[in-house]
Amino acid sequence: MYTKIILKSILMLIIISPIISKIPIRHKRYIAFPEGASLSIAICMTSQAIIRPSEFITEGLNWGISYDLPNSSAILEDYKTPGGFVRRRRSRRDLYQKMELIMDSMGYNGKQCVLRALCEAAAMFISNHEEIGLLEKSIMTVFGFPIQEILDHEPEDHRLYQEAHLHGKKSQECSIKYSKCTFSLVDMALGMYSYYS
């Protein structure tokens, strides 16, 4: 009886093993965009105020930023290699500095707002990672900061951004820590300040 079971098991392995060996293995894929491709983010806020029954004022505030997308698979190879996180941090730092400059020109504390966004994104999306949609994934991509150890030659901004990201993972008190920023970029991107949401 045991001999039949063993023979059947061996026969099954002989039959199944060629099928298992032919199953293709998919490797991690990367996207390279055409030369000059960019991601543009625009935020437009409009507010109306009625002055008198027949008159009203409309005030609009527009904010936009453009981020160059990777356009060569050679660049993407750097992201996969050990130490590629330094390049990712540098790329994110360039984006964050552009955002800070725009917010500074609008009268906000740009550095504090970016740090608050890094903190809030880490706090918000770490806990419910399975339940996020496309918009949340986009925000996580922009405000996710590589957490590998900061090297000695990297700029101080990298340490500040990483500290904000790690603070968000540990605590939910981002608005208190970065209180010089009066609004949340993450909430704005998610439509929390909209009257229609």
Rank of each mutant, 00 (worst) to 15 (best):
P34L: 08
A32Y: 05
P34A: 10
S40R: 13
T58M: 01
L61E: 11
L39G: 09
T46H: 02
S54G: 11
A37Q: 03
S38I: 08
S47Q: 14
A37D: 08
S38G: 11
G60M: 05
G60L: 04
I51Y: 00
E35V: 12
S47E: 11
E59S: 13
S54D: 10
E55G: 00
T46L: 05
L39K: 01
R52I: 07
I50G: 01
T46N: 09
S54W: 03
T58P: 00
L61P: 11
Q48E: 15
I41T: 06
A42V: 02
M45S: 15
C44E: 15
I57N: 11
F33W: 10
A49N: 12
E35H: 14
E59V: 14
P34I: 07
E35W: 06
I31M: 10
A42D: 07
L39E: 13
L61V: 09
A37H: 10
G64T: 06
T58Y: 01
I51G: 01
Q48F: 04
E59K: 11
T46A: 03
A49D: 10
T46K: 01
G60Q: 08
T58Q: 04
E55M: 00
Q48C: 05
P53H: 03
R52Q: 09
G60C: 05
A42T: 08
L61W: 09
E35G: 04
S40D: 14
F33I: 06
A49Q: 08
F56P: 00
G36P: 06
A42I: 07
I31W: 04
A42G: 03
G60N: 12
A32P: 02
L61R: 12
F33L: 07
I41R: 06
W63H: 12
G36C: 07
A32L: 07
G36N: 07
Y30W: 10
P34W: 09
S40M: 07
I43L: 12
E55T: 01
S47L: 06
P53V: 05
N62E: 12
S40V: 07
E55A: 01
L39H: 04
Y30H: 13
G60V: 09
S40Y: 02
M45K: 12
N62T: 15
S54N: 13
Q48G: 07
R52V: 02
I50W: 01
F33T: 02
T46W: 01
I41P: 04
S47A: 12
I31R: 10
M45E: 15
I31L: 14
E35S: 11
A42R: 06
S47C: 03
A32D: 10
L39Y: 09
F56A: 01
I57A: 03
W63S: 15
P34K: 10
L39C: 03
G36K: 11
W63M: 13
A37Y: 08
F56N: 01
G64N: 08
I41M: 12
G64C: 02
E35M: 03
A49K: 03
G64D: 09
I50S: 00
T58H: 00
C44A: 14
E55F: 00
E55H: 02
E59L: 10
Y30G: 15
S54F: 05
A32K: 10
A32Q: 05
A49M: 12
A37R: 02
P34N: 12
S38F: 09
A32I: 04
G60P: 10
R52C: 04
S40I: 07
I57W: 04
M45D: 15
